[in-house]
Design a binder for these strands. Structure first.
Length: 582
RNA sequence: GGUCCCGUGGUGCAGUUUGGAGUGCACGCCGGCCUGUCAAGCCGGAGGUCGCGGGUUCAAAUCCCGUCGGGACCGCCA
């Protein structure tokens, strides 16, 4: 049907008779004698010169046969890759007529209401930016598969219809027709199946797996997403990190052409202390400064006995109004802080600085001087302090740091980071005394910390696990761990978590059974492909790298999903609907 | 579950603070003119439930309440 693609024509093609197909991106009419039509396909635009009468409208689907010729002196267009040539003596065949598109298909569409774009996604996808995103995503998938294949990983497909487990995210659920009243769940991840693959001698498993979680949507979260999921036998943390780095590095090369280099590491504890986050955005500083010692003997009740930390917003005093400070204080409270202390740094007569703050009068001169010293305060800065228990102080200041200092997604480069030594337990339930797992209950404790499992709440919370996250520019790309493969250790963890034998059998019985038949030591990882592609492309929203995404409320403006189903379908499934909640 | 922002011809906006006739801009669309344009140009035209409902008022795009839709975030996402 065609001999060339629109975007590939160059002066080399001059004199050739070519046939191209595409959409009429723009037309410039000069009466019935002459018109210029920019024909667009996925490779770009080429100018076609149409002589004589015609009726060509925007987005008509055309097949144009003509002769490639150089553009006349002075009419070349350096903005187009094909701008030195044009197609002349055109024969035009209208393959399909088209209504005017609902929004412009050039860069101006970046400002169009996203609902309108999604409702007409098939038109939106024609745009150069969306074509670039789809094709970059395909290149990343391809690079990931090649890298995993090259490292001896085997791609195994795991089921989509699986048994529901109450842990973790809310399941999407599918009713069974054969057994009315029972349900499949769609996988939140292939976690248990990939471990079964290890027992099954697969040795190195991977899959670009669709995962589904019925949780609230965000800029970096959709119901459905894709993970590069991997698991390795006879391997530990270092093996996994090396293999994942190779895969991610291949994706980075495929998109940017640049080598990844060594990915730095940071312990979870250090990440929380310095950045107030387990997924620190290390593209910028504004690190948390610990001030607890400065207030060890303070008379200011709000600071006494608390973890006090601060961040310094350099040079921001003039641009930060009192209104803004009040607003930030409100936010800090919504984030869980008791309050937010701010201090404006001003030049003092003696050449030092003074800290102007509503609470300055409650602090001693020594304390104020120590704050200024530790935070390296300069005149014109604003300091923000939070005092609370360690985790809350870090969390609130971590959010405040992002609010005040986070650069746009397109700036600061690609700053990958391994966060290692996550705690095994996130918290200890005050009512039951049971620890709450931070990852999943098959995560191997750090060898050096096993003795602490016998201790009290404080000991339990200090147990490190062999779990690790990969972070890129403040987004959690993925996480993994070394798994427990020994039944006795697993039993120990279940006991601690209060998971009885019956419950364990009901929830993961098949995995525990499998382990009785000889489980190799194994470890794995999974990271989100949508997030990786978005960040590689400088998109701040993963919907831009998904062909048909859903809105924040989980609907699809194109298909109107989710929709009601008819009574016969419900009947067949043995389901009856409750009246709508009021 | 919560906080905040947005909703005005097909698209993007101004108008909302301080109520006074659907007033305006750009693009697109339709018609006309135009033989070297390139986000072509010139002339003319059509196109509106100011998201929806209620309230206040002589009068509401504008103020108030509710609601729907979209977005960002907190919680949630082992």
């Amino acid at each position: 049907m065609r001999s060339h693609l629109c975007g590939e024509l160059r002066p080399d093609h001059v004199g050739e008779r070519v046939t191209v197909c595409g959409w009429a991106a723009r037309r410039r009419e000069h009466g019935e004698h002459l018109a210029f039509v920019d024909l667009r396909d996925h490779t770009g635009l080429v100018q076609c010169v149409v002589d004589g009468a015609h009726d060509l409208r925007g987005e008509y689907v055309l097949r144009i046969t003509g002769t490639v010729r150089p553009r006349p002196e002075g009419t070349t267009n350096p903005a187009l890759a094909t701008g030195e040539v044009e197609i002349g003596e055109c024969e035009v065949e209208v393959l399909a007529e088209a209504e005017p598109p609902p929004f412009p298909l050039d860069d101006r569409a970046d400002d169009v209401d996203e609902t309108v774009r999604l409702r007409h996604r098939y038109v939106d996808l024609r745009r150069a930016a969306m074509q670039r995103n789809l094709r970059t995503r395909a290149a990343v998938n391809s690079a990931l598969r090649r890298a995993m294949d090259d490292q001896g990983f085997v791609e195994v497909e795991t089921p989509l219809l699986i048994a529901s487990t109450p842990e973790g995210a809310r399941d999407f659920v599918v009713p069974s027709r054969h057994r009315p009243g029972t349900f499949y769940a769609l996988p939140q991840s292939p976690q248990l199946f990939k471990q079964l693959c290890m027992v099954g001698g697969v040795d190195r498993y991977y899959q670009i797996a669709r995962c589904l979680r019925d949780e609230d949507l965000r800029a970096d979260r959709q119901f459905e997403f894709s993970q590069l999921d991997a698991e390795m036998s006879f391997a530990g943390q270092e093996d996994v990190l090396a293999c994942i780095e190779a895969a991610v590095g291949a994706a980075v090369v495929a998109v940017t052409g640049e080598q990844l280099g060594e990915v730095p590491r940071m312990t979870w504890r250090e990440a929380m202390d310095r950045y107030g986050s387990d997924k620190p955005d290390v593209r910028f500083g504004m690190e948390l400064v610990d001030l607890s010692e400065a207030f060890a003997a303070t008379g200011f009740n709000a600071f006494a006995g608390a973890t006090v930390k601060g961040i310094r917003h350099a040079g921001a005093s003039e641009a930060t109004s009192r209104n803004r400070l009040d607003d930030l204080t409100d936010r800090a409270k919504r984030w869980g802080a008791k309050g937010l202390v701010w201090m404006r740094v001003e030049a003092a007569d003696d050449g030092g600085v003074t800290l102007a703050s509503p609470i300055a009068k409650f602090l001693s001169a020594e304390e104020l001087a120590e704050v200024a010293r530790r935070m390296e305060a300069e005149p014109g800065d604003v300091l923000y302090l939070v005092a609370d228990e360690w985790a809350r102080t870090a969390h609130v200041l971590g959010l405040l740091r992002l609010e005040l200092g986070r650069p746009p997604v397109t700036e600061g480069g690609l700053r990958f980071l391994w966060v290692v030594d996550f705690p095994l337990f996130e918290s200890v339930d005050e009512a039951t005394g049971r620890p709450v797992p931070a990852h999943h209950p098959f995560t191997m404790p750090h060898a050096e910390d096993v003795a602490l499992l016998d201790g009290g709440a404080e000991d339990l919370l200090s147990v490190r696990s062999q779990a690790y996250d990969l972070v890129l520019n403040g987004w959690e790309l993925g996480s993994g761990s070394v798994r427990i493969h020994r039944p006795d250790v697993q039993q120990r963890i279940f006991d601690l978590l209060g998971i009885g034998e019956e419950e364990a059998q009901a929830k993961f019985g098949f995995l525990l059974d499998a382990f009785r038949y000889g489980a190799p030591p194994h470890a794995g990882f999974a990271f989100g492909v949508d997030r990786l592609v978005a960040l590689l492309l400088g998109e701040e929203n993963i919907r831009e790298v998904i062909a048909f995404p859903k809105t924040q409320s989980g609907t699809d403006p194109l298909t109107s999903a989710p929709t009601a189903i008819d009574a016969t379908q419900l009947e067949e499934l043995g389901l009856r609907l409750l009246p709508p909640r009021t």
